[in-house]
Amino acid sequence: MTAFAFQTVASILSEAGLASKLGRVLAERFPHARRPLIVTDPGFLRTGLIEPARQDMAACGMQPAVWSDVVADPPELVVLDAVEAARRHEADLVIGFGGGSSMDVAKLVAVLTGGAQALADIYGIGKVVGGRLPLVQVPTTAGTGSEVTNIAIVTTGATTKMGVVAPQLYADLAILDATLTLGLPPKVTAATGIDAMVHAIEAYTSKHRKNPLSDALAREALSLLSRNLLPACERGRDLEVRQAMLLGACLAGQAFSNAPVAAVHALAYPIGGIFHVPHGLSNSLVLPHVLEFNLPQAEAPYAELAGIVVPHASGSSEARARALIVAAQQTAKMTGIETMLRQVGIEESDLDRLADDAMLQTRLLGNNPREVTREHARAIYAAAL
Rank of each mutant, 00 (worst) to 15 (best):
T159A: 15
K187R: 14
Y170C: 02
L341I: 07
Q7H: 14
A200P: 14
S214T: 15
L37H: 01
P311V: 05
F6T: 10
A323T: 01
L291A: 03
L341C: 09
D356H: 01
K187G: 02
L135R: 03
K107Y: 03
I50G: 14
A190K: 03
H312A: 15
L246A: 15
R322M: 10
A355M: 07
S20V: 02
V66R: 10
A174M: 05
A53P: 07
L169M: 09
A171T: 06
L22K: 10
D172N: 14
T144N: 06
L267D: 00
V129M: 12
A259K: 07
M340L: 08
L251R: 09
L230G: 00
Q329I: 00
A82T: 03
A16S: 14
M340R: 14
S316L: 06
R209G: 00
F256L: 08
T40A: 08
S226D: 07
L184Y: 06
Q330C: 00
E292W: 02
R370P: 09
P64W: 06
V241Q: 11
D69Q: 13
A82F: 00
K187E: 14
D356G: 02
Q361L: 01
S257E: 06
E292S: 14
P260R: 06
A166Q: 03
D350G: 01
V128T: 09
H265I: 11
A268G: 11
L77R: 14
M359T: 02
L385C: 14
A266R: 09
A10Y: 09
D69L: 03
H289S: 10
A319S: 15
A323K: 01
G61R: 11
A91K: 06
A221V: 12
V66N: 10
G236K: 01
H289N: 12
H208V: 12
Q168L: 07
A379L: 06
T47W: 04
L281V: 04
G336H: 12
A313V: 09
P231L: 05
Y381S: 02
I125M: 08
S257Q: 07
T181W: 00
V198F: 03
F97L: 14
S101C: 01
E292V: 03
V9H: 08
G48A: 09
D81Q: 15
I12A: 03
A59T: 05
V165S: 09
G366K: 09
D357I: 01
P260E: 07
V309S: 01
L37W: 02
T156Y: 02
S284F: 00
S214Q: 12
P52C: 13
A298D: 05
V111H: 06
A5Q: 13
L18F: 11
V70L: 08
A358K: 01
A203G: 11
G99V: 05
V241A: 12
D73I: 03
A91H: 06
A174W: 09
D215S: 13
G145M: 10
Q7S: 15
